[in-house]
């Protein structure tokens, strides 16, 4: 019996009797990070990183939460469990599981570059590595963050000159906070959609410092947006909500924007390939550094990455999971915000 099994509820450790990022309710869930495809409601207890807890609370409400720091080992039914920075978003972790000298690491979502916000990804030596593969194709090669930030700021200035509001489309958890690292440097006021506002509040309340933002609300005069900055979750660009910012330009921040067709298909004025996942080289580097003898690939381009690993001498297999459906949560959030604005 392997230490971790792939079951219909998710990744399961039979000896420790816990699941990692289960997609159905279980007794004990260890959560890598607060994105909706990894953190689902209904479990009896949750274990996560200290910084992840306020976000889980925001998304899943009150539950039994147990928090740990990175590298802090907890013993669960004789299995040693510890969390290690994954660099994906605030409080995101890899899960290291050890029993009788055998070590598994479950990556969750991760990126290699230190974004100055999420903690620096740390390679953890193991026998078996379960890796994500969201951008597991060699066409995905990220530019360094500072370069993308410069492009973003230049774009804002260009819009300002043309008398337009810059509307950024970014995940409310993760990407939106990353944008706040560079946008204040433009000196312009920043407005955020309600979904991002809620995340912002939860993060700052927990003591994590973030720059100040304003919530887009029905009583904000339209003129106050003009030439300034708005951040909204994915999907907002296609909803009537965005009309209040006319004239505006839409910039989508996502690794998918690496491919031109995606920028066009989503009718964006600009695409910024700012990703919270590892690019192709990042995945290969991370996998190598774990020293794992066996790699399971989930979440994205499983078959491509697994085949490539096998061909380059690393034993790998693909695993089907339910990770990778971030968008649905957002469309709900947007619908809610729309309704609220209409009612007011």
């Amino acid at each position: 019996m392997p230490l971790i099994e792939f079951t219909d509820k998710g990744l399961y450790c039979r000896t420790g009797q816990f699941y990692i990022d289960p997609w159905k309710p279980v007794d004990k869930a260890i959560i890598t990070h607060a994105h909706s495809d990894h953190a689902r409601p209904g479990s009896k207890s949750y274990l996560c990183h200290t910084q992840c807890e306020p976000l889980l609370r925001l998304r899943l409400g009150d539950n039994r939460y147990q928090t740990v720091e990175w590298e802090e080992s907890v013993l669960i039914n004789g299995v040693a469990v510890s969390l290690h920075p994954a660099g994906h978003m605030i409080g995101s972790s890899q899960v290291r599981v050890e029993c009788n000298g055998e070590v598994w690491v479950i990556s969750g979502d991760y990126k290699i570059e230190d974004d100055g916000l999420s903690g620096k990804f740390e390679p953890v030596r193991c026998n078996t590595f379960v890796t994500e593969s969201t951008f597991g194709l060699p066409v995905y090669n990220w530019k360094p963050q500072h370069e993308i930030f410069q492009n973003i700021k230049d774009w804002v200035c260009k819009n300002k000159e043309a008398g337009k509001t810059s509307v950024f489309i970014a995940y409310s958890l993760g990407k939106a906070q990353r944008l706040l690292q560079c946008l204040p440097e433009t000196g312009l006021p920043i407005f955020v959609h309600g979904a991002i506002w809620n995340a912002h509040e939860a993060i700052t309340r927990s003591g994590f410092p973030l720059p100040a933002v304003n919530r887009v609300s029905y009583d904000t005069p339209k003129e106050s947006y003009l030439g300034n900055i708005v951040i909204a979750p994915s999907g907002a660009e296609a909803s009537p909500w965005i009309k209040k910012f006319v004239p505006y330009a839409v910039g989508i921040c996502s690794g998918w924007m690496q491919v031109r067709g995606n920028v066009r298909r989503r009718n964006a004025d600009a695409g910024f390939a700012l990703s919270d996942h590892a690019d192709w080289k990042g995945l290969l580097q991370a996998i190598k550094e774990t020293g794992a003898q066996k790699v399971f690939v989930t979440h994205g381009f499983q078959s491509v990455l697994a085949r490539y690993l096998n061909e380059t001498g690393i034993e790998a297999a693909e695993v089907k999971t339910e990770f990778g459906n971030e968008i649905e949560e957002n469309s709900e959030a947007i619908a809610k915000e729309q309704e609220q604005t209409n009612n007011q």
Binding site: P138, V139, V259
Partner: peptide, 26 residues
Amino acid sequence: LAKLPDWLFEESYHVVGDLAETIALL
């Protein structure tokens, strides 16, 4: 130049949908 197997190029092309762009990215 990119030292990639042919099949991986094809997978990439399939996703990008444009040969000139696939090459520029790889």
